[in-house]
Design a protein around this nucleic acid. Structure first.
Length: 881
RNA sequence: GGGCGAUUAGCUCAGUUGGUUAGAGCGUUUGCUUUACACGCAAAAUGUCGGGGGUUCGAGUCCCUCAUCGCCCACCA
């Protein structure tokens, strides 16, 4: 062992974490080499927005990816974790618009398209991608040389190629359709970018006079201001109240227009007044009615959501909400407002702009999805792609089987400009470059951000103009780790794109992470101020602590309730591990190799430790195979804290005190166990484990724990029988400690115990373990015999466990009455259990239908309980009962 | 309206295909300057497993039903 310098008393994460990342990077540890002979393993990062900063959601997501990558690396795979960022059209454009307003007081339109885009790029170079640098602080082992951006030339070429290909296939088309319009971004949105929220609103009942003066119809609306776009009033064709009015005209109030009364099944006689105002330009259902009844479509809105010139003069240019109020006022003045009802209704908001969207008819580009969805549905149905937790596949199928055309054009400047060209004759050409002549002008619109994201798993590797080697080695990727909130936006579309453009699924497993909430269950948000900055958390607790804590507390498939205090789990755990190593280091050098177990027989405790290591190794392997990160974290925590520190280290103090060969052997096993623990723990806590592996001399300078072989089950030396016996010994120790603490005898006081072994075999085993028992119980002396403690020697309290009865002679120290009461309660409990167990065994159906092993276990349990009861009875007798 | 999830100790949650007396961490209580660690050690207490019904020899676990909470999708003149 190379004792370079003594370890400090408490673990200080900052220096250690600062040190290792550059070391790993310098040694090129993160690079994924497509020419390697090892089998490939790859993950693509869900590209964070280039404007983004690290949140706890990213911490969770990327910690899990790093665990997978580091484990795969240690298992001998050539690992490549592809990092990068997303240009995030709307978000970034809005961000830079705001920035330019604040710094230079110029608007987007004042700068013009070309200049504005230049400024966005400048902003990106200066402020963007901060999140990527922050991921390094977390220890993420991405192949940083391969960082990509969705607007890079290569990725943009992929976007153009895909657009042209889909256009040529007839999947992409341009058309006038009802779309979602965001007045904040002044752009079209896809259906997925609209979020419905329940808000308080009002139902306004308006009277529309019949043109012939014979009366009026009452219509109800939540959107009075859209009345200027009304081109009909609909009633149900069979509604006896109104069917004779079909074909007549009503006067549209506040205007000089007359509009027809039409019959259409959309009007439900049981709802509202039975009469519906029809606004084909601003409502999807009304649009359909308009189509059926040949109605005019009037768009009454400007791109910013204000009313346009098609409305009465006093409304033109007015914001839609102000117009609503004025409209109601004017109707009231005209005596046409019948009533107003308060209601709660769902209103669509734009995801990014967080303002109510408008539905309106507009010329946009769409992509037909039906055919693309088919192989993507099959990929998940057949199990080629697996979802974890599996239930998300239901959400996926539901959406995919009802998939709608995707509105892919956006009226922004920041994004991939659509490779379509128009000439003066009104012709359209789609291609990389416009044809010669005819003054072809490129389409002004850009593409939805997700139109580049859906290509990410292969565009990031260089597709279609290169990256052949990368694709061969790393595509399809293995695992995808992402949030269930982007199943539609991203996951489903990536599967479709992969199948369509590469002929292969883009990944085999998708793990959906939990959503992080605060400890009150609220979503983390900047405005609530409940969103901790991960960098502050790292400063206070350490990156390893944050990583471990978050993996430890993340339940499977449910929301995580997070608070900074939870990071104490990881911080304390790191400190525990640190001190375990510190203790080992203080015991001095050992000549054995930590990669091998010492030759010759091991002690029972040492065998026990090996069995625990093997069990934990197997558990961790199984849990991680199934993406049960938290279960793996719990297994590691218990292995280190409980098995290794609480029991094994304490037990090994005996041979270490004995010195000589025993000490040498003990140290060798400690080293073996510690090294195994550091390897198992490395994917979760890379920094501290790398540091300790070097400090302890387990890994030589210039080499890295991160490239050590990940442990596999089977040291070949653990002995299950011995492990069970040692479990029994530890149970006996716990019983002895209970007796001590029951009578408030301080831990430091040396006591004398008597142990009655349960049988001859146990007598021999426990006698061998005498020094260990004395140490663990802090006993001055322990009598081990086949006989119970002789009551004539005085009062004693006892506990019965599987391997025997441990007694503590009291020599006038205790309250006899209290002890009698305790034993009586214990006896009563035992009797209850015995009765229950006997009843079960007396039940023929149980004996005949339960598995033989279960019946046998129940029998031996009954014997155990009966023996315990007998012993307890004897103890009561000792105390004079 | 359709779908999904949750309901277990004061709090946060485990509990794998039904099989001993339902667990952990935090918190609480008690005792510890035991020569790695007070970011620690030893020990203890706390549960009608949301309610009701059913299947079974046996149910926290499977089925039905009700309740409450949350999310997603659809609809909403």
């Amino acid at each position: 062992m190379a004792n370079i310098e003594p370890l400090p008393r408490a673990y200080e994460s900052a220096d250690v974490e600062k040190k290792w990342f550059p070391e790993w990077e310098k040694a090129n540890c993160f690079h994924g080499d497509p020419a390697s002979g090892k089998p490939g393993y790859s993950i693509v990062i869900p590209p964070p927005n280039v404007t983004g900063i690290l949140t706890l959601g990213h911490v969770l997501n990327n910690t899990l990816q790093d665990i997978l990558c580091r484990r795969a690396r240690m298992k001998g795979f050539e690992v490549c974790w592809f990092p990068g960022t997303d240009h995030a059209g709307i978000a970034t454009e809005a961000r830079v618009v705001k920035y330019l307003k604040e710094t230079e007081n110029v608007s987007r339109d004042e700068l013009g398209r070309e200049e504005f885009i230049k400024r966005v790029w400048q902003w990106k170079e200066e402020f963007g991608g901060k999140i990527i640098r922050q991921l390094r602080t977390l220890g993420c082992s991405c192949d940083w040389e391969r960082e990509r951006f969705t607007m890079d030339e290569g990725l943009s070429a992929a976007v153009r190629k895909v657009f042209i290909r889909l256009y040529e296939k007839g999947y992409i088309y341009r058309g006038q359709r009802m779309i979602n319009w965001c007045p904040a971004a002044k752009s079209a949105l896809s259906d997925e970018e609209v979020i419905y929220k329940d808000v308080a609103g009002k139902f306004y009942y308006f009277r529309y006079p019949l043109a012939d003066g014979s009366g009026y119809l009452t219509v109800a609306t939540t959107r009075p201001e859209t009345m200027f776009g009304d081109t009909a009033v609909a009633v149900h064709p069979e509604d006896p109240r109104f069917k004779n009015l079909i074909g007549k005209m009503v006067k549209l109030p506040l205007t000089d227009r007359e509009i027809p009364i039409v019959g259409d099944q959309h009007a439900d006689p049981t709802k509202g007044t039975g009469c519906v105002k029809i606004t084909p330009g601003h409502d999807p259902n009304d649009f359909e009615v308009g189509r059926r009844c040949n109605l005019e479509v009037i768009n009454i809105m400007n791109p910013d959501g204000s009313l346009n010139d098609l409305c009465p003069a006093e409304f033109a240019g007015m914001d839609r909400f102000a117009a609503r109020d004025l409209c109601v006022k004017r109707m009231e003045e005209a005596g046409l407002l019948e009533k107003i009802e308060d209601i709660t209704h769902a209103v669509g908001f734009s995801e990014r702009g967080n303002v109510p969207i408008e539905t309106l008819v507009s010329a946009q580009w769409f992509c037909k999805m039906g055919e693309l969805a088919k192989p993507a549905i099959e990929a998940v149905k057949s199990g080629k792609i697996k979802f974890y937790p599996e239930r998300w596949s239901k959400t996926y199928f539901h959406w995919m089987e009802n998939i709608q055309d995707w509105c892919i054009s956006r009226q922004l400047w920041w994004g991939h400009r659509i490779p379509a060209w128009y000439n003066e004759k009104g012709e359209v050409y789609v291609g990389e470059e416009p044809p010669a002549g005819d003054n072809w002008r490129q389409e002004e619109d850009v593409l939805d951000t997700w139109f580049s994201s859906w290509l990410w798993p292969f565009s990031i590797m260089g597709w279609p103009n290169g990256g052949k080697e990368e694709m061969a080695k790393f595509y399809p990727t293995n695992d995808l780790v992402t949030g269930p909130d982007i199943i539609f936006f991203w996951v489903a579309r990536m599967i479709m794109a992969g199948c369509e453009f590469t002929g292969e699924i883009p990944f085999r497993n998708v793990y959906f992470t939990s959503i992080i909430r605060d400890d009150l269950g609220r979503k983390l948000s900047k405005s609530l101020g409940n969103s901790p900055d991960p960098l502050d958390v790292i400063k206070e607790y350490g990156a390893d602590a944050l990583r471990f804590s978050i993996a430890y507390i993340a339940p499977i498939g449910m929301d995580i309730k997070y608070s900074n205090e939870k990071c104490e789990i990881g911080r304390n755990f790191a400190n525990k591990l640190w001190n375990a190593c510190r203790f080992r280091q203080m015991q001095g050098d050992c000549s054995a190799d930590c990669r091998k177990l010492p030759e010759g027989a091991l002690s029972a405790d040492e065998n026990w430790m090996l069995a625990k290591l093997d069990a934990a190794t197997e558990t961790i392997e199984n849990e991680l195979e199934n993406f049960r990160f938290h279960a793996a974290a719990h297994a590691l925590y218990d292995l280190v804290w409980s098995d290794f520190c609480d029991w094994f280290v304490e037990a090994e103090k005996v041979p270490m005190r004995a010195g000589g060969e025993a000490k040498e052997r003990a140290l060798a096993v400690l080293d073996y166990a510690l090294f195994r623990i550091l390897k198992l723990l490395h994917p979760f806590m890379p920094f501290i484990t790398e540091e300790l592996a070097h400090r302890m001399g387990f890994v030589e300078e210039g080499k890295f724990l991160m490239y050590e072989e990940f442990p596999t089950t089977g040291s070949g030396r653990s002995n299950a029988g011995a492990a069970v016996a040692v479990d029994g010994k530890f149970e006996l120790v716990r019983a002895g400690r209970f007796l001590r603490s029951s009578y408030n005898l301080p831990d430091g006081k040396k006591l004398k115990f008597h142990i009655k072994a349960a049988n001859g075999e146990m007598l021999e085993f426990l006698s061998n373990e005498l020094p260990s028992l004395k140490s663990l119980l802090n006993a001055e002396d322990i009598e081990i015999s086949a006989e119970a403690f002789d009551p004539s020697r005085g009062a004693a309290v006892s506990q019965t466990v599987v391997c025997g009865v441990i007694s503590l002679p009291l020599a006038d120290l205790i309250d006899v009455d209290a002890e009698i009461a305790r034993l009586k309660k214990q006896l009563a409990d035992l009797d209850k259990w015995i009765a229950g167990t006997r009843a079960r065994l007396a039940n023929e159906k149980f004996v005949s239908s339960a598995p033989a092993q279960v019946v046998a276990d129940t029998r031996s349990k009954l014997a155990e309980l009966e023996q315990k009861a007998e012993e307890t009875g004897k103890l009561l007798a000792v105390l004079g009962n």
